[in-house]
């Protein structure tokens, strides 16, 4: 005799498999893509809701860049009586912020997303791992290009 708790447990843990027919599955997916294309507006990225979001992101990026530039140009801040010194923004962070800001100016949110992918794609396991020297040289070149 099975108790109600047994029924509860066996239903919860039952391995209920469904096998999906590939042919019809593919047709349904095609249909969904078609429905999506028909119902999409011509320029969804330019809608007001997206624009306000993009402006907020641009403002955040701009603030980060201004702070980073101020720190890098003025050098380390004057020693203050406080025991801890403010942390200096690294070259990598600065270059990342600059490259993202540049991408945003050139191509908006999509370009920022693409830039992110490219940046993080370089750190994947299957990619050739560059040495620290190579990275610094690359970043210095990037910064020089941006200053021109």
């Amino acid at each position: 005799m099975r108790s109600e708790q047994d029924i509860e447990r066996s239903f919860k843990q039952a391995n209920l498999q469904v096998t999906i027919g590939a042919e019809r599955d593919g047709r349904i997916l095609d249909e969904l893509v078609e429905v999506q294309c028909k119902s999409a507006s011509p320029h969804p990225a330019l809608r007001p809701a997206s624009r306000s979001w993009a402006l907020s992101l641009a403002a955040v990026v701009a603030v980060v860049i201004v702070i980073a530039l101020l720190v890098s140009r003025n050098g380390p801040p004057e020693p203050e009586p406080a025991p801890s010194r403010p942390q200096i923004v690294s070259r990598i962070e600065l270059a990342t912020a600059i490259s993202l800001e540049k991408a945003f100016r050139q191509g908006g949110i999509e370009a920022v997303e693409k830039q992110y992918k490219e940046t993080f794609g370089a750190f994947r396991a299957d990619a050739k791992t560059p040495s620290v020297d190579e990275l610094l040289t690359h970043l210095e070149n990037e910064i020089t290009d941006l200053k021109r």
Partner: peptide, 14 residues
């Protein structure tokens, strides 16, 4: 013949 899904025995039972 144009079936999208097939149930396992366990799923059919439940």
């Amino acid at each position: 013949p144009d079936q999208w899904i097939a149930y396992s025995e366990e799923l059919q039972r439940w």
